[in-house]
Each structure stands twice: as C-alpha cells, then as structure tokens.
C-alpha cells in the first residue's frame, strides 16, 4: 500500500525533515508513527498525500511514485486517501453536513447517493444528530470527529491522520482512537502520526527521531 525507499525530504535552505526513511505498510495495517514534535511525522504524511515531494529516494503510494507523479494526476491520488489534518481544516461558513459533502462534490458523486453517504459517515462518528450545526458550535472532540467523517466519506482504502488526538482530553482522545480502530477492522489501511502511540496499543509502531526511523 505504502512504500518508502530511502526517502528524504530536505527543505531549503538545508533543513532535513526526513533522512533515508525506508518502510512498507501492507493493506489493512494499522500503523502509529511516533516521535517528538518536529521529528518529521507531518512531513511523512505530506509525502504520502503528495502535498510534498521527496527530495531523495522514492515514495510509492498504491503503486504510484509520488516523486514523479504528474501534477494533473495528484487530485485522483488524493481522492483515494482520507486525510485528517492536524489543524482539521473545517470550513466554518458551512454546517457539518456540508463539510462532509465536500469531498463527494469534488469527486463528482451523484447528489442523491452523496447525501446518503455523508449521513452514513456522520452517523459513524456519532454526529448525525448535529449535522445542521456549524463547526463553531461543536466541541473540540466533535470537530475532530467531523474531520474524521469528512476523511472517510469517500470510503478510501487508506486513511491518514496527523495528531488526531492532540488537544483532546483523555476520554475524548480514547473515543477518537476507537473510531480509527473501527475503520481498520473493516479493512482500511490506517496510518496515524501521534505523540501518544499508547492510544493505539495494537498498532505497529514507527518512531521518528530527527527525521530518521529508530
């Protein structure tokens, strides 16, 4: 599903975010990427989502080489991924339901089917009753769950999450972690960058230290 082969990412003017990182993730695996802040976890996720391109080595996602991917092919790669961003990136000018609809509108889903799917995704994270609520009205945990609903609404085979439990209290964090486990249970490959790998006891752990795998 994912293969890093001696992958590096250097930001100008010479800061190495990732150095010589190699690992494989098989389909259906649950992987927790740990490490201190600034160890390169976010960069690793950005390489998978083709938000950044590697400056050395190769990154393959679903058989596609991120380094040589054409610009106009990137949207189609991203449609097969679900990403929960560190800053969530919810749109505050539209309600929960409309936030979840966005990925389906983008990929051109038939409206009727899209509506059904969006409601199913909201139901899955326990927000169906709040679908008309604006994000600002939601609690931190609810906002995080909304971000997850948006990430999974297109039923991607690969789900990426960047610090999905940061800023949440222990109980809410455990709730959110459980949602990811549920997705892995139905066959989704899940890769989570987290400072607290203990939240995912059954996950395979990768630990980054100053851009290198330990």
């Amino acid at each position: 599903m994912i293969r890093f082969a001696h992958a590096s990412k250097r930001y100008p003017p010479g800061m190495d975010a990732l150095s010589d990182v190699s690992f494989d993730v098989a389909a259906g695996e649950l992987v927790a990427v740990g490490g201190h802040s600034g160890a390169g976890k976010s960069t690793l996720l950005k390489l998978i989502a083709a938000i950044e391109r590697p400056t050395g080595g190769a990154v393959l996602v679903q058989g596609q080489n991120i380094g040589s991917l054409k610009r106009n092919a990137i949207p189609y790669l991203r449609r097969n991924l679900g990403v929960v961003f560190q800053d969530q990136k919810l749109l505050f000018d539209r309600n929960a339901f409309e936030n979840v609809m966005l990925p389906l509108t983008i990929s051109g889903f038939p409206p009727h089917e899209a509506k059904r799917r969006a409601q199913a995704a909201l139901d899955k994270v326990g927000l169906l009753a709040r679908m008309k609520a604006m994000p600002i009205m939601l609690s931190g945990g609810e906002q995080q769950r909304l971000a997850i609903a948006r990430a999974v609404v297109s039923r991607p085979s690969l789900l990426l999450a960047d610090e999905p439990t940061a800023h949440l209290d222990a109980e809410t964090a455990a709730d959110v972690a459980r949602i990811f486990l549920d997705f892995q249970a139905v066959g989704v490959t899940v890769l989570i960058a987290t400072y607290d790998t203990n939240l995912f006891p059954r996950a395979r752990r990768l630990v980054l230290d100053h851009g290198r795998l330990k």
Partner: peptide
C-alpha cells in the same frame, strides 16, 4: 483561500 486550499487537498482538479 481556505476553501480552495482544502479542496485541492481533497482531490479537486484545477478545473473544479
């Protein structure tokens, strides 16, 4: 800006 950036991350084409 935010909406455009997010749409790109969610797989929107330039045309979209």
């Amino acid at each position: 800006r935010a909406e455009i950036e997010l749409s790109r991350l969610l797989g929107a084409t330039d045309a979209f």
